[in-house]
Design a protein around this nucleic acid. Structure first.
Length: 234
DNA sequence: AGATTGCATCACTA
DNA sequence: TAGTGATGCAATCT
């Protein structure tokens, strides 16, 4: 069984096009080049009115005789400065978001190219936090509140974070892979002699994954699979 | 161990 | 000076 990142969309009725989520980012694949854009549709386009900026420039360069005009120029100047500041703040925030997303894409490049869940690399909050120079708590909040749209569907950013384990050869593997193997093994097992966690651990070891029995149990529980004796059928 | 969350702080506004 | 949003720190959860 694969996890569906769009719960509710599946089913025999055929995938309806109903969108419940407005993604915050879009990742496009421009012939091998992954492009991240921020969907700031909620924030209307922010820019200085060219007209005001222009007016300001002309009037600033021409000496004003009338006090009223001076006041007007002063007023516009003030507003333009305020606008600049505001736009900068928003940009700053957007930059933080973009940096986060770009760091994720960089780390999970393979996934964004192919859309295969098995291509996800081990990646934790700290990795991203360090690459963009923010705190893990900040990343945590972003990961839990933002979504990204890809050609393969819409995913919560949290989806891309997965703990890793290291094999004998020092190869880093996402624990999703381990779970996949466990799932297969359990599906194929002889139901009158279900595989115990111990047996599963051995099986993994044979494949080069050195995983403690206790860890197997942990993964099994995370996948909502009961212990061996509960799976026994006659 | 890694993720989440409450709280303090900072920068700035009204 | 009270209010606000982003952020980091540290306690707490899983």
């Amino acid at each position: 069984m694969k996890l569906n990142p769009k719960p509710g969309e599946s089913g025999s009725s055929g995938s309806g096009k109903t969108q419940y989520i407005i993604p915050d980012f879009t990742v496009r694949n421009e012939d091998g080049h992954l492009l991240v854009t921020l969907n700031s549709r909620n924030t209307p386009e922010l820019r200085l009115s060219a007209a005001y900026a222009e007016t300001l420039r002309t009037y600033e360069s021409t000496p004003q005789k009338e006090q009223q005009l001076k006041d007007a120029v002063q007023y516009i100047k003030q507003k333009v400065d305020g606008a600049r500041w505001f736009i900068d703040s928003v940009k700053q925030r957007q930059n933080t978001l973009l940096n986060t997303m770009e760091a994720i894409v960089k780390c999970q490049r393979e996934f964004f190219l192919e859309g295969e869940e098995t291509y996800l690399r081990p990646m934790i909050l700290k990795d991203i936090a360090e690459t963009i120079g923010m705190d893990v708590s900040t990343i945590s909040r972003v990961a839990n509140s933002k979504y990204v749209e890809t050609e393969f569907g819409i995913y919560p950013l949290k989806f891309f974070f997965t703990e890793g384990i290291s094999t004998d050869e020092g190869e880093e593997v996402s624990n999703r892979e381990i779970k996949k193997i466990l799932e297969e093994a359990i599906n194929k097992e002889n139901k009158s002699k279900p595989l115990t966690d111990d047996a599963l651990a051995d099986l993994l070891k044979a494949k080069g994954y050195n995983i403690a029995r206790r860890t197997v149990a942990k993964y099994r529980e995370q996948m909502n699979i009961p212990v061996a004796r509960m799976r026994k059928e006659l």
